[in-house]
Amino acid sequence: MAKLHLEPRIQNPDPLYKALAYLHTDLSAEESLVVNAKLLFLLINHIGDEAVVYEAIDLVRKDMDSSRVE
């Protein structure tokens, strides 16, 4: 397990975050969701390692569950 990298790996996060945020500038809420989903599929195919993706899915599910309890 623990194939999913959780330590910082992105050298220049600010421009990357900015590019992501800009992507959503003129989008409706629904369009934003579709754009995010497209990014998601592009990236999971790039990663190609299903175990890593399942690990990430587990992680966000647990994260959601705990935020609902609070």
């Binding site: 629904e30 969701l33 579709v34 989903a37 497209k38 998601l40 599929f41 195919n45």
Partner: peptide
């Protein structure tokens, strides 16, 4: 759910152009 519909719309859109999306 609307989230499930969104996922499906995204993959169907991608599939038109990109072969990687079609198996989904």
């Amino acid at each position: 759910t609307s989230g499930q519909k969104t996922l499906r719309k995204a993959i169907l859109d991608l599939a038109r152009e990109y072969a990687f999306a079609r198996p989904f």
